[in-house]
């Protein structure tokens, strides 16, 4: 008993190290990440124009107004179309490219680099170039389509075509990332599977269909969720691509982040804009939940098999 009492708690050198090392980082982190995230929820419950002292608590009213507001609903619809549009093109194309590359080709790393390049280049310059490529008068894209007998189209002026354009640009930009992740997954598939399958007569497309796709399922889910989350946050390319005739940026295709920024920084509806951010958060949360759920399901069935 006496010895225990003597062992009073004292800070040892490694305690000091943890304390001194971690405190500033956690402080910065709390200030720059944690507090703003929590505050988003808090502000969304108020009606506040940023300037006035008066800041009435309105509960969930901002959310009620949101779902009755045309601009928001349009933005939600457009963003959803864009996110899923990117998903259904970017993920399968990336998978096919990764698969073809994995089957062996000369200069493989150069092919990889070329496919990957758009992903790391900044968005604004490439969007500027795409804007010019998609130009209705002298655009390269309309010129290319003319060889297939397709008449020129106002890609960036027509609201529907503008959405298609945004999807095209973003697919082009994200294929490389998705391809790399699939490549990692493909190298994880043991050659034995393919060998065993070829004995059973499954080669080429059949092997791809019955071995590659099922084994890549967790990676496909991960890539799809990441693609959707990024898709829901689409903004920069729209800011550049979809300006209307008067040049007001991002007006042809209204998306969530654009609507949010407009409400916050042009109309100073901070509460309302934060409510939009909360909706965006819920979308991300649901998507992440789906991914984690599917991953866990896979683990569980794996464990069951071991038993």
């Amino acid at each position: 008993m006496a010895t225990l009492a003597k062992k009073r708690f004292r800070l040892k050198p490694h305690h000091w190290f943890v304390l001194l090392g971690l405190t500033p980082i956690i402080a910065i982190y709390t200030y720059l990440r944690f507090i703003p995230i929590v505050k988003t929820f808090y502000i969304s419950l108020f009606q506040w124009d940023m300037v006035s002292v008066d800041k009435p608590f309105v509960g969930l009213e901002n959310f009620v107004i949101l779902f009755q507001s045309d601009p928001f609903l349009t933005a939600l619809k457009n963003t959803t179309i864009i996110a899923f549009g990117i998903l259904i093109f970017s993920v399968p194309i990336a998978l096919i490219i990764a698969y073809l590359l994995s089957r062996g080709i000369r200069f493989k790393s150069w092919y990889e680099a070329i496919y990957f390049l758009p992903y790391i280049t900044p968005m604004v310059p490439v969007a500027v170039t795409w804007k010019w490529i998609l130009d209705s008068q002298q655009g390269l894209f309309n010129y290319a389509l003319s060889f297939f007998g397709i008449s020129p189209k106002p890609w960036l002026l027509d609201p529907t075509l503008a959405i298609v354009s945004v999807i095209m640009l973003t697919v082009w930009k994200t294929i490389g990332y998705n391809m790399i992740i699939f490549t990692v997954g493909l190298t994880g598939i043991s050659k034995e599977y393919y060998e065993a399958a070829s004995i059973d007569g499954a080669t080429g497309l059949k092997a791809f269909r019955y071995i590659t796709i099922p084994l890549l399922k967790p990676i496909t889910v991960f890539v799809s969720v990441i693609t959707l989350i990024h898709g829901y946050n689409v903004f920069s390319q729209i800011y550049v691509l979809a300006s209307d005739i008067q040049g007001s940026p991002g007006y042809v295709v209204r998306v969530l982040v654009y609507d949010m920024i407009e409400n916050a920084f042009r109309f100073f509806n901070m509460g309302y804009a934060s409510a939009e951010a909360v909706i965006l958060f819920l979308i991300v949360l649901v998507l992440t939940g789906i991914q984690m759920g599917l991953a866990r399901e896979k683990n569980r069935s794996g464990r069951r098999m071991k038993r």
Binding site: I35, T40, A264, V278, V284
Partner: peptide, 24 residues
């Protein structure tokens, strides 16, 4: 617990908390 919080906030995109960050 601290690490779990860090990890959980990693999934929150910047666009979601940029308004309060701006105000700060």
């Amino acid at each position: 617990a601290l690490f779990a919080i860090l990890l959980a906030t990693a999934i929150v995109p910047f666009e979601i908390y940029m308004i309060p960050l701006y105000l700060q």
